[in-house]
């Protein structure tokens, strides 16, 4: 009892303490477990996909994989040597070797060549649908944030946006199929895919745009209006320019979503395989919009479910997944980095 304060404030070792420490550790373990799981999926696909995408010698990237269309892989033995050739090379080989006609070969679809048409298709789908979604979404956000007063109707619109965000992507696919493909008679086409995807990301774009518009200080609007600017002049000259960077960076997240979704394009825009590239063999320029395309996510679905798995097919499977994941990850990280940088830059 010489020093009561010291004994009062000394930590009391006991069961409670141990429990508490254990519980807090559990939270930490949960957090890092999630991160590890994510990292593992990334790592596995990068590790197995990299050999397909990169090469050991210059130019260090498998150019053919990025620039050619998918082909079947023919595996056969010729004069005691094991050969693996794609469609075209195999035909050339047969033509060159008279005795090659009798070769017994195992063929694996999609396992040779590259994924160029899929990359092109995905890019077209993303560009078109984001164009539509940005136009509709930014306009909606401008109305909701700048013009609308709090009324039952506006609340209804907000409710609709909120609910639209929760609709499963496959339902968007069904809707796009029912409306664009069947009812409008657009068939499986770019246009149908664009609108389906655009409607799907609309809530993301609207929310992002509204957030950015809200970040523009009220003073900019009042100052402009007090100088005799009309509402539209105020928005165009003094609100949108400052909100636009935010709108665009946040919408990049929408791009990641559009690029990554498979279910909505399965019946509206994607072909399993298509020989022609989108700009080849068009009779009219309008045909461009009414053609289906190959798309990366759908291609991954096809190669992972419709063909058997073995050493030959795994290469293209992992390679495609690697490229796709890389693209989406790049888009997403761009968005995250830009957004945090933007937040630091614009402080009014």
């Amino acid at each position: 009892m010489t020093s009561p304060t010291a004994t009062h404030f000394a930590p009391r070792p006991g069961l409670g303490r141990t429990w508490e420490r254990g519980a807090l550790w559990l939270f930490r373990v949960a957090t890092y477990f999630i991160v590890l799981c994510g990292a593992f999926v990334f790592g596995q696909i990068f590790w197995r996909g990299a050999p397909t995408v990169f090469t050991a010698h210059a130019p260090f990237v498998n150019v053919a994989f990025f620039t050619e269309a998918p082909e079947s892989l023919h595996v056969f033995a010729y004069q005691g040597e094991k050969m693996e050739l794609g469609d075209r090379a195999f035909n050339a080989f047969k033509a060159a070797h008279a005795d090659a006609g009798a070769i017994k070969d195992d063929s694996y679809v999609y396992s040779a060549g590259g994924i160029f048409p899929c990359i092109v298709g995905t890019m077209l789908l993303v560009a078109g649908s984001m164009g539509i979604a940005l136009f509709l979404g930014v306009s909606s956000a401008i109305y909701l944030n700048e013009y609308a007063r709090d009324s039952a109707f506006v609340r209804f619109i907000r409710l609709a946006i909120l609910n639209l965000a929760g609709v499963p992507s496959i339902v968007f696919g069904l809707f796009g199929f029912g409306m664009f493909v069947i009812f409008f008679g657009w068939n499986v086409s770019l246009l149908a895919g664009w609108f389906t995807l655009a409607f799907m990301v609309l809530p993301v774009v609207i929310t992002a745009s509204e957030e950015s518009l809200k970040a523009v200080p009220k003073g900019f609007r009042e100052g402009s209006l007090a100088l005799g600017a009309t509402k539209w002049q105020t928005i165009r000259k003094n609100v949108l320019p400052y909100a636009l960077p935010g709108i665009l960076t946040s919408s990049i997240l929408g791009i990641a979503r559009v690029a990554g979704e498979t279910a909505p394009i399965m019946f509206t825009a994607a072909y399993v395989v298509r020989d022609k590239l989108p700009w080849e063999g068009l009779e009219k320029w309008t045909d461009f919009f009414f053609q289906g395309v190959m798309a990366l996510p759908y291609h991954i679905y096809v190669v992972s479910s419709k063909i058997p798995q073995n050493e030959y097919t795994a290469r293209v499977q992992y390679g495609t997944a690697f490229v796709f994941l890389l693209i989406v990850a790049l888009i997403a990280s761009t968005s995250i980095v830009l957004r945090s940088r933007l937040r630091n830059r614009y402080k009014w």
């Binding site: 991160v35 994510g38 997240l253 990554g260 498979t262 989406v328």
Partner: peptide, 12 residues
């Protein structure tokens, strides 16, 4: 990092 996981496409 955790938010990034949501960017992994479901088909992957």
């Amino acid at each position: 990092c955790i938010e990034f996981i949501s960017a992994i496409p479901s088909v992957v």
